Simulated assay, not measured.
Amino acid sequence: MPVIKANTLPTGNLKGADHGATISLILDHSEPGQGPRLHRHPYDETWVVIEGNLTFQLGDEHLEVNTGDIVIAPSGVPHKFTNRGPARSHMVCIHASPTMITEWLE
């Protein structure tokens, strides 16, 4: 596997298929109050919270997560998150797929 420098990913997205990898990932940095709309994927998605305080919605469940926590959304489960603040959050979002496939629900 090659080494991929973070500064070569201007959007923070890495499509695994472009690098011969079986996963894709997003280096997410969200400001307080920000996060993606409700969506789902046909594969698991896992987040490693490097820094931050966030609220995740997984299906009907709402979870408060903090620095060091790991969140897993199973395949097909609608999900989204919002940074609760007070500072910018930093997460690594791992898509269990060499390409990102997203169905936006809102």
Rank of each mutant, 00 (worst) to 15 (best):
L58K: 10
H39M: 13
G20N: 02
L9M: 09
I94K: 09
M91A: 14
C93W: 05
V77S: 06
V71Y: 06
T55D: 00
D60L: 15
V92I: 15
L27Y: 07
S30I: 11
L105E: 01
K5T: 04
G12A: 02
L38G: 06
G76K: 01
H29K: 14
T102E: 04
I101W: 02
D60H: 11
G68Y: 03
D18G: 13
N53V: 11
H41N: 09
K15R: 07
F56T: 01
G85E: 02
P74Q: 01
S89M: 14
L105S: 07
R40D: 06
Y43P: 08
T22L: 09
G59V: 09
W104I: 14
I50Q: 05
V92D: 02
D60K: 14
N53A: 09
T46V: 15
R40V: 05
E51A: 14
I101C: 05
P78I: 08
E31R: 11
K5S: 08
T8I: 07
A73H: 08
L38P: 13
H62P: 04
T67Q: 10
V48D: 00
H19S: 00
P98D: 02
D18N: 12
W47N: 02
H19C: 01
G76H: 01
A17F: 06
D18H: 07
Q34T: 05
D18A: 10
G85V: 09
L27D: 06
G68M: 08
I26P: 05
G33F: 09
T55H: 01
E106Q: 07
T55S: 08
F81N: 11
L63H: 12
L63D: 00
I4K: 01
T99Y: 01
T11Q: 04
H95M: 12
L105Y: 03
H62Y: 11
A73P: 15
S75T: 11
P2T: 03
E64I: 08
G68H: 04
T8M: 11
V49C: 09
E106N: 12
D44I: 10
W47C: 14
N66D: 01
L25G: 02
V49I: 15
H39E: 07
E51M: 11
T82L: 15
T102L: 13
L25Q: 03
G20F: 02
L9F: 12
T22H: 06
G68P: 12
H19M: 02
T102W: 03
S89H: 04
S75G: 11
P98Q: 00
H39R: 11
H90W: 05
G12Y: 04
E103C: 10
E61K: 12
K15Q: 05
I72K: 15
M1C: 14
N53H: 11
